[in-house]
Amino acid sequence: MSDRSNSDDFHAHPAGKASDFLTNALIVGLIRLALALPYAARIRFVGWMVQKVVGPVAGYRARALDNLELVWPDMPKAERALIANRCLNNVGRTLIENYSARDFPQKMAKNVPQGPGVAALEEATAQGRPVILVTGHFGNYEATRAALVARGYDIGGLYRDMKNPYFNAHYVKTMEAFGGPVFPQGRKGTAGFVRHLKAGGQLVLLFDQHVYAAPVLDFMGLPARTAVSAAELALRYDALLIPFYGIRQPDGLSFECVLEAPIPPSDPETMTQALSDSLSARIKDKPEQWFWVHRRWRGDEV
């Protein structure tokens, strides 16, 4: 079954460099080709393409290997290479799943979220209390949001604009397609994000990318600048702070959606460190599912 629901957005024309335009054109071509395939074939195809072609050419494989060596210098090179390859495959699968704006939500609608955070979310929603759901670039971070939206939750999100404006213009549409409002980082986006939260809504945040001047916390045994905004918002608006994960299963197509127990309120850095510890445990268990391609550690942590 093909899924073309975002095709009209591929030709948005924001201002950008010629190299950005070319890169976006190549990505759009890959996405269009993939969306013409049956669902399972499309997921496997883009996973393979990012692992074998896009990732190595774009330098993502090299960056993943550098990060893996930084975190696990004693791990055999062959094992780090295997994790990097599987990481790229997961990145590709995640990309095309998020562009499958009809098929992917339909599949996730059959998924029943698990974990102690489910009951906490249900109780908070019944009371009109806001909830902040926090995760990292692990598995597919949209899988659980799609599963919850299918159960009637109005879950919004705050996103960071991609550096490539051509790609960003249509990628934002993929987040909107899963239901719930999405807000860009910045004054205007944050204002909308806060209004949704104050009204008792649920919001998703990803916290595992480097943020300049953010506090230095432990992540995977190394110092890493980490945004504490999710915890700050939770404290300010008496919102539950729930770690969650969409964990890819061995078939490469299905997911286990897990909501962990809420983080106890204390102070922003302590709460964020608890989030980092939660994500670190997930990565150690399934390292191939984290996006090692990001520049998480940049040498300015000391």
Rank of each mutant, 00 (worst) to 15 (best):
S5Y: 04
S7W: 12
H11E: 14
P14L: 03
P14G: 07
A15W: 13
N24C: 13
A25M: 10
A25F: 09
A25Y: 08
L26W: 07
I27H: 12
I27M: 15
L30I: 15
I31E: 00
L33P: 00
L33G: 10
A34H: 01
L35N: 07
A36M: 04
L37D: 08
R42Q: 15
I43Q: 08
I43N: 08
G47I: 09
G47W: 06
M49L: 15
M49N: 10
Q51K: 15
V54Q: 09
V54K: 06
G55D: 08
V57I: 15
A58T: 13
A62Q: 14
R63G: 13
R63M: 15
A64M: 07
L65T: 07
L68E: 14
M75G: 10
K77N: 06
A78H: 02
A78M: 04
A81Y: 03
I83R: 06
A84L: 11
R86F: 04
R86S: 05
N89D: 07
N90H: 14
G92K: 08
G92E: 11
G92D: 11
T94I: 06
I96T: 06
N98C: 13
S100C: 12
A101R: 01
P105S: 09
K110T: 10
V112N: 12
G115K: 09
G115W: 08
V118S: 05
A119Y: 02
E122F: 11
R129T: 08
R129D: 00
P130I: 02
L133V: 09
L133W: 04
G136H: 01
Y141D: 04
E142G: 01
E142C: 03
A143E: 04
T144F: 07
A147W: 09
A147N: 07
L148I: 01
L148W: 02
G152D: 08
G157D: 02
R160H: 14
R160W: 11
D161F: 14
N164E: 07
P165M: 11
F167C: 05
N168D: 14
E176Y: 12
E176A: 15
F178C: 08
F178L: 14
G179E: 05
F183A: 07
P184S: 10
P184I: 07
R187P: 02
K188Q: 13
G189L: 10
T190N: 09
F193H: 05
F193W: 06
V194T: 08
V194H: 04
L197Y: 00
K198H: 13
K198C: 13
L205T: 00
L206R: 03
F207W: 00
Y212M: 07
Y212Q: 11
A213D: 15
F219R: 06
L222Q: 14
T226E: 01
A227D: 02
V228L: 03
A231R: 00
A231F: 01
A234P: 01
L235Q: 14
A239Y: 03
L240G: 01
L241I: 04
I242W: 01
Y245M: 13
Y245R: 13
G246H: 10
P250S: 06
P250D: 09
C257G: 08
L259S: 01
P264I: 05
P264D: 09
P265D: 01
S266I: 05
D267T: 05
Q273L: 10
A274I: 02
L275R: 00
D277N: 14
R282G: 01
R282W: 08
K284A: 08
D285V: 02
K286F: 05
P287T: 03
Q289C: 09
V293H: 11
H294L: 09
H294Y: 14
R295K: 14
E301I: 01
